[in-house]
Design a protein around this nucleic acid. Structure first.
Lengths: 170, 170
DNA sequence: GACCCTTTGTTCAACTTTCAAGAAGCCTTA
DNA sequence: TAAGGCTTCTTGAAAGTTGAACAAAGGGTC
């Protein structure tokens, strides 16, 4: 083993004790928060957090409508998942689909008035939950640090443009 | 509206622009990472991240076995979810169940040799993925900050002991 | 022991997510 | 305009998750 100096399969560099503690804290905190928000929204708005996020995106888009692919990209979910999700939200009457005029393959999803209303009603509770878990507990410095850390993390994970798998071209 | 000064339903305190940016960065980064790890482990170890975590827990327990409830608690999942997960891992031959000698209601889950082997083989790749996404990108200061921030977050979300819903007793 | 309340782990049905496949429209090139 | 390749969105089946309900055993009290 220990193949070549190209960084592919050297001896694994395990995490230090400190790093392990941080990693566990990360997993612990992020799953607790996600679970908390999921339950809160399921209870108060009748949908999971991801679906709520879709309504939020739509509510902020011009004319409250978006192409499916764009919406999927912004919400970081697959188109397949979005299809199923929108079908469900459509059943609730919160979203509807319409053909895209300029591209016959395309669909626009748009937020109905009823959907907007659900959002309006549940937003305060959601914000309160986020505040209570995060912003009301962290110092302003910590909020800044968190933002920067998350920015760095995302940078390393970004689907990245074309040529993402051709790093030698960059 | 605006009921009473007990903090229950005042005017919602929306997030500031800065807070919103941080919150979005948080959602973005954490979902990207979780997706990344899920795919990595699904590909290299044949199971999702949560299941992998269960094997890790078992591998570190004395005699590589744990009571179901304890395992569920440590992994922060419901007993129901754990039942399903262990059933699946049992089919793979990576985990087995045995009756608990001291409590006839109880079950111990234990890691088989085969399960241990899977873990041994896939651990390096997993650690590499975590490193590459997180620890190799953050400065030591940032790692420290992240740890502290996550600790604070978890504190506010912890299922908390008994009396969790009786805050006035604390 | 009889009673009652709690804990343990599983099960079922409903729901969500994933993955692979596929129909349909777009776009470029010849 | 035909051909080939790409993009858009959906579908269906398998896998995973949730929440409520349940049987069985523990543990206290009378």
């Amino acid at each position: 083993m220990d193949m070549a100096p190209n960084g592919v399969s050297e001896q694994p560099r395990w995490l230090s004790d400190d790093e392990q503690r941080v990693w566990r804290a990360y997993l612990h905190a992020t799953t607790l928060l996600e679970d908390h928000l999921d339950r809160q929204l399921q209870r108060d708005a009748g949908m999971p957090h991801v679906y709520y996020g879709l309504l939020v995106q739509l509510s902020q888009a011009p004319r409250r409508r978006m192409r499916m692919t764009e919406l999927a990209k912004d919400a970081k979910i697959t188109r397949s998942r979005l299809s199923h999700a929108v079908a469900r939200l459509e059943k609730n009457g919160w979203v509807r689909r319409e053909d895209c005029p300029s591209d016959k393959r395309g669909q626009n999803a748009f937020l109905t008035d009823e959907g907007y209303e659900v959002l309006r009603r549940s937003a305060p509770g959601h914000v309160a939950a986020v505040r209570q878990a995060l912003f009301d507990r962290l110092s302003p410095e910590q909020v800044g640090q968190l933002g920067e850390i998350m920015r760095v993390m995302a940078e390393g994970l970004q689907p990245a443009g074309p040529d993402a798998d051709l790093p030698w071209l960059r």
